[in-house]
Amino acid sequence: MAHLLLLSNNASTGAEVLPALELLLHENRCLPANTEALSQIGDAEAVILDARTELIAARALAQTIHSTVNLPLLLVIGEGGLGVLNSAWHASDFILPTAVPGELEARIRLILSAAPEVVVQENTSGLTIDELSYTARIDRRMLDLTYKEFELLKYLSQFPGRVFTREQLLHEVWGYDYYGGTRTVDVHVRRLRAKLGTDHEQLIGTVRNVGYRFYTEV
């Protein structure tokens, strides 16, 4: 039996969000879907987030859950929302509200038994990224990054040498529901280079007429 925390602004019980949940033996609490609820995690082993509506707010909260409590996250999302799911949500898995008890039990079991995520990245460039504390260092110097700057640097460094178009980076880091233009990517890359400093700014290389890539050595 697992201890689950269900976050929803549209229901007061788990049965209203995910009827199959009430047919399982797990203990679950239902709290409002906001950041204040994260201070009441208690003994929860996983978080179930109601993402059936208010997708933008749900994605923001999912990212906060990942960066602050780092518990397995199961999204409850309708079929209409599946098109906006991507790695920026940091969800362990998702499930439709109409799922039967057997499927829900299997998904809960899988996210609880999954191997812990590697949260510290290090490479020969001198860059160290700690996903748990949302911090980044270059040659042991702490970088003062905004949330999106951190996410962009982390994403690029996960795929050294791979070239990404601005559109790809916009979708993967900002999400498909972001309506700003690709100029946003250029602005954040420029800020990242400034914060990396003159000795390391070339870690993020420009591929003319295409986009950007991350180099492990400069």
Results as ranks from 00 to 15, higher is better:
residue 10 N to K: 07
residue 138 I to H: 01
residue 172 E to R: 14
residue 141 R to K: 10
residue 197 G to I: 13
residue 58 A to G: 09
residue 164 F to R: 05
residue 32 P to N: 05
residue 217 E to S: 13
residue 201 E to H: 07
residue 178 Y to I: 05
residue 56 I to P: 09
residue 83 G to F: 07
residue 185 V to E: 06
residue 138 I to M: 11
residue 55 L to N: 01
residue 36 E to L: 09
residue 211 G to R: 12
residue 101 P to W: 15
residue 177 D to H: 11
residue 93 D to V: 02
residue 128 T to Q: 09
residue 199 D to W: 02
residue 152 L to H: 03
residue 31 L to G: 00
residue 79 E to T: 08
residue 16 E to Y: 11
residue 190 R to L: 07
residue 26 H to S: 02
residue 59 R to V: 08
residue 199 D to E: 13
residue 178 Y to H: 05
residue 112 L to N: 03
residue 142 M to N: 11
residue 201 E to Y: 09
residue 70 N to V: 00
residue 91 A to C: 03
residue 30 C to N: 11
residue 112 L to C: 02
residue 173 V to T: 07
residue 204 I to Y: 05
residue 51 A to K: 03
residue 114 A to I: 05
residue 12 S to E: 13
residue 208 R to V: 11
residue 47 V to S: 00
residue 110 L to T: 08
residue 119 V to L: 12
residue 84 V to H: 06
residue 6 L to W: 00
residue 110 L to Q: 13
residue 21 L to D: 01
residue 198 T to H: 12
residue 140 R to K: 15
residue 156 L to F: 08
residue 162 R to G: 07
residue 145 L to P: 00
residue 129 I to V: 11
residue 146 T to W: 06
residue 28 N to F: 15
residue 104 L to S: 12
residue 91 A to G: 01
residue 199 D to P: 00
residue 39 S to W: 01
residue 192 L to P: 08
residue 131 E to A: 15
residue 35 T to P: 00
residue 2 A to Y: 14
residue 147 Y to E: 08
residue 34 N to Q: 05
residue 104 L to V: 08
residue 154 K to G: 02
residue 172 E to P: 01
residue 52 R to I: 05
residue 160 P to S: 03
residue 128 T to D: 04
residue 217 E to R: 15
residue 22 E to H: 10
residue 163 V to M: 15
residue 50 D to P: 06
residue 59 R to E: 10
residue 44 A to Q: 06
residue 51 A to R: 02
residue 141 R to H: 13
residue 54 E to W: 00
residue 17 V to I: 15
residue 126 G to F: 08
residue 161 G to I: 01
residue 177 D to S: 14
residue 102 G to M: 07
residue 60 A to R: 15
residue 77 I to C: 03
residue 116 P to A: 13
residue 58 A to N: 04
residue 160 P to H: 04
residue 119 V to D: 04
